[in-house]
């Protein structure tokens, strides 16, 4: 046996469990504001992801038990479900989980090897394949679990009763109709800073994210970069034309901005790895996401932004290598 002969008590499992723990406040807020339907889809996605992981590992003749229990598939499943509308039908959740684990993760070589964020890849695949289902968001404040369960487990999709336009959707439609931002924001879909109800979930993600930073589970540069990228871009446009562009605070509190800041762009496998590279990667994702939201064809653009930046990671990493010890020393 060779040195070092001692190791910190750390494990991949512990890393993943910390992430799951940090998601708890956001999920709790979700259940409180939107309804418990999300828990059903979380359970379905977890089961599907674990089954897919085990199956592919077996097919690939890799150690099944060690990797299935590392928790990474569960993290992927949860992040995917939290990015999806919580009332998508069960089969869509299963399909998404399969796509994330089999296509986005294992086809590239499994954990640690995938260039694209699996949860975001699944989101993109599903929103392209099922644009209608992926756009039906539950309305805040109703929390009708029976109705949500009905939608998830099948049967008819009488969605009008439980769905509502999201904040980003309402803003987008309003602006298309040439309304003023302030007039739009005065409608019932909005709360203090973002979508009514949804802003609490964003606060939950923020709390979990700060816990991750405090425990050094994630690098602060990634959330900071994303928030600065999206918030900074929004700020520039908002200052220039406040009647046509929503405030940076609105953008950061709406949609998946907080989830992305602390849980999506922070995926170590697919993010840039150098200190400066992390800032560039996350800021790029934030900027692109804002442009897709405001000028693109989809109300939420984070998934596309993240995948686009994933492509750039090798280049970013290569160009931002930190100086080794003594390299900056002048003789």
């Amino acid at each position: 046996m060779t040195s070092p002969h001692i190791r910190q008590p750390a494990s991949v499992q512990r890393v993943m469990l910390t992430v799951l723990l940090a998601l708890a406040p956001g999920i709790a807020a979700y259940v409180w504001q939107i309804g418990a339907g999300i828990l059903v889809n979380l359970a379905i996605a977890t089961a599907a992801a674990l089954a897919a992981e085990a199956l592919v590992l077996k097919l690939r003749a890799r150690p099944v038990a060690l990797t299935v229990t590392d928790g990474s598939a569960v993290v992927t499943a949860w992040l995917m479900v939290l990015a999806f509308p919580s009332i998508v039908p069960w089969w869509l959740t299963v399909l998404g989980a399969l796509f994330a684990i089999v296509a986005a993760k294992h086809l590239y070589g499994g954990i640690g090897q995938n260039p694209f964020n699996p949860a975001m890849a699944a989101y993109c695949a599903m929103i392209v394949a099922y644009p209608a289902l992926m756009s039906q968001w539950p309305a805040a404040g109703q929390g009708d679990f029976a109705a949500q369960l009905q939608l998830i487990l099948g049967g008819s999709r009488e969605v009008d009763a439980v769905t509502g336009a999201t904040a980003l959707d309402t803003l987008r439609t309003g602006l298309r109709n040439h309304a003023d931002v302030n007039t739009i924001l005065a409608t019932g879909a909005f709360g203090f800073v973002g979508g009514r109800g949804w802003e609490w979930i964003a606060a939950g993600y923020l709390a979990g994210g700060l816990f991750l930073i405090a425990t050094r589970s994630i690098d602060w540069r990634l959330p900071l970069g994303f928030i600065a990228g999206m918030g900074g871009t929004a700020c520039l446009f908002w200052l220039a034309a406040p009647e046509r562009f929503a405030s940076p605070l609105f953008h950061l509190a709406s949609g998946g901005a907080m989830l992305a800041s602390f849980f999506i762009v922070t995926d170590p496998v697919t993010a840039a790895s150098t200190p400066r590279g992390k800032l560039i990667f996350a800021a790029g994702a934030g900027i692109i996401a804002w442009f897709v939201r405001v000028f693109g064809a989809y109300p939420e653009g984070i998934a596309f932004a993240v995948l686009l930046m994933n492509i750039c990671v090798p280049l970013i990493d290569h160009k931002t290598q930190p100086a080794a010890f003594g390299q900056r020393t002048r003789p």
């Binding site: 890393v15 954990i111 640690g112 090897q113 150098t274 930190p322």
Partner: peptide, 21 residues
């Protein structure tokens, strides 16, 4: 414990006194 695949978490880079990755 058994070796697992690298997840590029970057802890090694944070711990490295030689400033390498």
């Amino acid at each position: 414990p058994p070796e697992q695949p690298c997840i590029r978490c970057g802890r090694c880079a944070r711990a490295c006194p030689a400033g390498i990755q």
